[in-house]
Design a protein around this nucleic acid. Structure first.
Lengths: 212, 212
DNA sequence: ACTCTATGTTGTCAACAGCAACATTCAGCG
DNA sequence: CGCTGAATGTTGCTGTTGACAACATAGAGT
């Protein structure tokens, strides 16, 4: 009982992306090959070229998809956190860590050289959308008392960079020996708390005038 | 007039590492191949295998060398910053950014999947040494009033992750459109200031009792 | 039915990693 | 001085991969 095996796959592009996510998740990103994907999906070795010019293009597309999910994931975390802007922003930071842990394929793709050194337009757009979501939330948290006197753009870049750094620390296991006996994921959550307190009531009462 | 061309290169291992750093710096890390390095150094295609079992081993060795330089670079920055522990720690953070910018070959190697997913012992050791340098400096800054009430390990992980994240933001140019008209390197320095103030006089006067 | 375009296949080539067999150098030791 | 073994470098081979070209099939619109 064989599959009809139509000449045209019908949904090859998405099938390749899905399989790529699987492969990356459990064999790492170096184990990925266009030919391997073609084999896994049951298609000839040159078929992927119709949808992705080269490997970089495939990874960029995967990253683009990843950023869309990432944005949704982070937004969802904020929604579930209630109405306090600082608490929402804290929840978003935690969700960054959780996303990196639960979606390693997407997250490691974000940082892969083939992706970071690429100027693909749709990729940049999806990344920009993510940054804008963070930016809005940061502005609201600031209005609620978080680092009231800082430059908004710097503040946003800071929190974004710090959360990203913490997530990288968790995904790359390095340094795990110096943090002996500590759950890395738990450590990351405490880092988030250091970036943004879990609630606006815990913001420093006033931090004006640092330049006296 | 030919070069004597001794059968034995004499210093092949280091020559390969040096050439690798060059190639990565101006062609990116994916453009690196053992055979290409062998050609560039003027040696047969299988010669590198005597010194590096495979590509991962070479990259790990390069990263190990990189961490040694990184440690020296950061330590040097602290020395030049004077005696105020907070100012010293701030200078170290800035030096992380500067290192990433001035030594892109080493820095991008640090984050390459082939390196991060590797458990090479000498690599882990050199990385651990770097972390310990940061740890000591963080402890001194804390004693001088910086985040006096935080868990030292969390504090160190936080600052390390944040500085790393900022450095990544600068090396991967992404997000540069949302930070339009801003010098990324300058932005990164302001981020450092948000992590650690430039001087202990600027530490929050007291930040005890956040759990009232 | 006819045609254009999207999609998939087969065949080919160059580059590369990895391995094995062989050659040369060098250091130690009689 | 000459032997021997380890380190280092070379040549040759195999399998995988990315990239390309030429061709085949399917589907949509006229």
């Amino acid at each position: 009982m064989e599959i009809p095996m139509t000449y045209h796959h019908g949904n090859l592009k998405q099938a390749l992306l899905d399989r790529a996510a699987e492969v990356i998740a459990d064999q790492g990103i170096e184990a990925l090959s266009l030919r391997g994907l073609a084999r896994d999906v049951g298609v000839s070795h040159a078929a992927p070229a119709r949808h992705f010019r080269d490997k970089k293009a495939l990874l960029s597309a995967l990253a683009t998809e990843g950023y869309l999910r990432f944005s949704a994931y982070v937004t969802d975390a904020a929604e579930k956190a209630g109405s306090d802007p600082v608490a929402r922003y804290n929840a978003m930071g935690r969700s960054v860590i959780r996303f990196a842990v639960t979606h390693p394929a997407y997250y490691t793709t974000f940082n892969h050289p083939d992706v970071t050194q690429q100027a693909d337009e749709t990729l940049l757009k999806s990344h920009r959308e993510y940054l804008e979501i963070v930016m809005m939330a940061a502005a609201e948290a600031q209005a609620a008392g978080w680092h009231r006197d800082a430059d908004p753009l710097v503040l946003m870049a800071f929190s974004s960079a710090a959360a990203t750094g913490a997530a990288n620390m968790v995904t790359n296991r390095r340094g795990s020996d110096i943090f002996e006996g500590r759950d890395l994921e738990d450590l990351a959550e405490q880092i988030i708390n250091l970036i943004v307190p879990p609630s606006s009531e815990l913001c420093a009462p006033n931090n004006e005038d640092k330049t006296r």
